[in-house]
């Protein structure tokens, strides 16, 4: 008997399984030169889309929702929220 009919409600981890952000983000975080690489943004980001690369924070825009938490928690106000075009 072929077992092809057997499918199960099982899922496996995959990057971006929650879907990409698309074009509904209204503001985006932009890291300026003031960044001291302290990782506060990485710690608080709900999406895991910002982190320190080298000595400066880097944003992964594909999944960033533009919530602005990073800009708010940054101790040196190094992140600016810029309107999307």
């Amino acid at each position: 008997m072929s077992l092809e009919y057997q499918v199960f409600p099982v899922s496996t981890p995959a990057e971006g399984a929650g879907g990409k952000t698309g074009n509904w983000r209204t503001v985006r975080p932009v890291v300026t030169d003031r960044c001291i690489g302290c990782n506060a943004c990485f710690l608080w980001c709900p999406e895991g889309t910002i982190g320190v690369v080298g000595r400066k924070a880097k944003v992964y825009y594909e999944y960033c929702k533009g919530c602005g938490v990073c800009a708010n928690v940054c101790p040196v106000k190094a992140i600016e929220m810029v309107m999307e075009q």
Partner: peptide, 12 residues
Amino acid sequence: VIQGMGPKNSYG
């Protein structure tokens, strides 16, 4: 809901 749609998910 935030796990996304099966058969994939966003949890490690």
